[in-house]
């Protein structure tokens, strides 16, 4: 479980997050939702320790994340950033191999290579392993970065807008794979998603942010009501049930 308390970020005059208190359950998919500029990516990057908070604390199973040793933390939590690109010319297979760095420090053994093959197969990258990253499409590159985080083999997986650049097929497959990872492997997954329907139909838990504050949070079925979503996005949102799953209607 990730416990966040009193988390602040940004200059005192224009804070981006004003004291966030939230709990993110282990072994579940948690979606961070909210309008543009609400602070979703900032919160994710603070949990991922890509940013340093102005105050407050983040605890992972009781351990203070801000004090944790980076190399040890990398075996517990993997991150896929929003604009994933690299300056050097890396092949897809080698990129995924970097996911094994926290375990093998660059000396890939048989187990590491097996993990890389596993990740390649899971994210449909067969045939692309030898390609350079800058020769791939945006969606393929995105999948390569997700495969790298998967190969890191951590209990927690943080993804910042993983559906960007993905077509219908791959977006849906990715969410199904995340679902599978949470259910079968007990991984805790935190995602920032813009598409409300992807968020409510695939995730177990939501944390909704608005203007740098938590608007509401909790299990999807209880927390994400039509009134709350309407207020959150300042747009009329109707919730219906489609095959027993909530479906949001907000297009017109």
């Amino acid at each position: 479980m990730i416990e966040i308390s009193g988390l602040r970020f940004g200059p005192a005059a224009h804070p981006i997050l004003h004291g966030i208190d939230a709990a993110i359950p282990a072994g579940r998919i948690t979606a961070l939702i909210g309008p543009n500029g609400a602070g979703k990516s900032t919160l994710l990057n603070l949990i991922a320790r890509q940013l340093a908070p102005a105050g407050g604390s983040i605890r992972l199973d009781g351990q203070d994340l801000l004090q944790a040793e980076p190399s040890q933390l990398a075996r517990r939590m993997a991150v896929v950033a929003q604009q994933a690109s690299v300056g050097s010319r890396v092949r897809v297979r080698d990129l995924i191999g970097f996911g094994r760095w926290p375990h093998c420090r660059g000396r890939l053994g048989a187990a590491d290579r097996a993990a890389v093959r596993d990740a390649v197969a899971l994210f449909g990258l067969e045939g692309l392993e030898q390609r350079f990253l800058d020769e791939l499409s945006g969606g393929q590159r995105q999948r390569a970065f997700i495969a790298m985080a998967y190969a890191q083999d951590t209990d927690w997986l943080l993804l910042d807008e993983p559906l960007n650049n993905l077509d219908l097929h791959h977006a849906r497959n990715l969410m199904a794979q995340l679902r599978q990872l949470a259910q079968a492997r007990g991984k805790g997954i935190v995602i920032v998603v813009h598409d409300l329907n992807y968020a409510i139909s695939w995730s177990d838990h939501v944390v909704a942010l608005q203007g740098g504050r938590v608007a509401f949070q909790g299990p999807v079925a209880e927390a994400a009501t039509a009134e709350r979503l309407t207020a959150l996005y300042r747009t009329p949102v109707m919730l219906t049930l489609l095959d027993g799953r909530p479906f949001a209607q907000y297009h017109r």
Binding site: R49, P70, V79, G87, S88, F98, W101, P102, G106
Partner: peptide, 20 residues
């Protein structure tokens, strides 16, 4: 030299892989 390969991914990815 191995850690330089990771550093070439950039600060963010390298840090999330546990590189100081």
């Amino acid at each position: 030299h191995h850690v330089l390969d990771v550093a070439a991914l950039g600060r963010g990815p390298a840090r999330s892989l546990g590189v100081a």
